[in-house]
Design a protein around this nucleic acid. Structure first.
Lengths: 134, 134
DNA sequence: CGGTATCCGTTCTGATACTG
DNA sequence: CAGTATCAGAACGGATACCG
């Protein structure tokens, strides 16, 4: 049996604590998707309401058309984002969080909030480290 | 002025809500580091206590020596992980979360918890998507 | 044991061009 | 507007060899 699972049955002590670090574990794969550079930002932005492709692109500085498309497709595939195509000219496509996606938002929000509130400490730590190591 | 900042002063409506999507933003850089594939797992494991290099490597299935070293160095640089070298033969190096690292753990934990509790829904969404798109 | 240094394939990503 | 297709360069990541 090689298919990805939650694999909470490896016998390791740590699995008791619900963590799973196994490579073929589905949780780890999903984690990688969500904790993605662009995914995080897209989820963050969409929580305030649906946005069009171009609006997302404008808000997320530095994202290429290609990567935004790829990211949105992945999030759509995972059931986190809903894509709505309006049959008008010019085309209009709206992206919004699904109910499942909204349940994720709070967690994502807290991760970003942590980063915002601790960025000074991290910057200081980096400066110290860099000075120490040359 | 091109140095990374929190950049909460761009004038965009979204900045009012504290989100920052600008490429040169320090928050985004830190976010990328933390939301890293291996970093997440290391932080998770270390919350239960300090571990040696080899112990971490054994716990995290699939991580190469190189990537574990790189990850640990980054976390150390960011002040999230503390590295303790014991002057013994054979060498012994312990890794532990710093107080700052521990403040992050709860957030990381909730992210993994979300993934664990919603993996079935995501798997189902993927199956639906894949079936629909062929 | 706990690394560092190097090589090298793969994957990611952005730029560009084109389309309904 | 909202993509798709293609391509080349950069970054990532693993395998291997070697060291204090």
């Amino acid at each position: 049996m090689k298919s990805p699972t939650h694999c909470a049955d490896t016998g390791s002590d740590y699995d008791v604590l619900q963590w799973d670090t196994r490579e073929d574990c589905e949780v780890r794969q999903i984690l990688d998707r969500i904790a993605d550079k662009w995914s995080l930002l897209v989820i963050a932005l969409l929580d305030r309401g649906s946005l069009r492709f171009t609006e997302l692109r404008r808000e997320i500085d530095g994202v290429s058309q290609r990567m935004l498309t790829v990211t949105l497709r992945q999030l759509e595939r995972d059931g986190l984002v809903e894509r709505t195509v309006h049959a008008v000219v010019p085309p209009r496509v709206d992206y919004a969080l699904t109910p499942l996606g909204r349940t994720l938002h709070e967690t994502v929000r807290s991760l970003v909030a942590w980063t915002e509130s601790h960025q000074r400490e991290i910057a200081a730590a980096r400066a110290t480290y860099d000075a120490r190591t040359g």
